[in-house]
Amino acid sequence: MLEYLEFLKWIFFDQNRYVYILDGLLFSLATTLAAAVIGLVLGILLALLAISHFYPFKHKKGWEKFNPLSKLAFAYINVIRGTPAVVQLMIFANVIFVGYLRDTPILVIASLAFGINSSAYVAEIIRAGIEGLDKGQMEAARALGMPYSLSMKEIIIPQAVKKILPTLVSEFIVLLKETSIVGFIGGIDLLRSANIITSQTYRGVEPLLAVGVIYLILTSAFAVFMRKIERGLRERD
């Protein structure tokens, strides 16, 4: 037993190998955070486009129900959700960020790729949340004379946020785990740090388990934190 602990100590602390894990952890967290912000902002925009009431051709026969903004949003969502994240990531690294952009840090490329990937899912979560609300809420607000934007701000969005939050949290948990494919484009994240330690120590199991436990701790902490916030929101009504 004591022998094994000594062995673990050697794997992770000899030549300060745990620093790889810390660096990888930092990379994973930074990518996730940046991607979450990009995904949330883009996702909100996309959701608003998808549910917009923009009918520029409503006086043209056959085109009354044609909403180019919503069509565009759905096409984007369809493409992003319909292709693997790892393919998108590699397209970003090997097709878009080449030539002049070759020296772009991998952190930036990864954040953009994951952010755009996440935005499609976030958009669908938000759209479903808003459309799932009782139609009477919007009608009541409009009937009082409140404009669309004010009704959204005061009535629809506060209610939708409460409904959306749990699903949004799981989307961000998925995002954190998904960043582990960043090794495909040379990013050194949590998972890659385990590989590096393996290559130096010839021990495959312990570094992987250590990394798995770290992922689990991060996602659990996040879930607990969000559940607290949810409960706080729910107490109001």
Binding site: A140, A141, A143, I155
Partner: peptide, 14 residues
Amino acid sequence: KVGMVFQHFNLFPN
């Protein structure tokens, strides 16, 4: 100028 009351009340729950 035109008040409206609905069958399902539609009060704002938030």
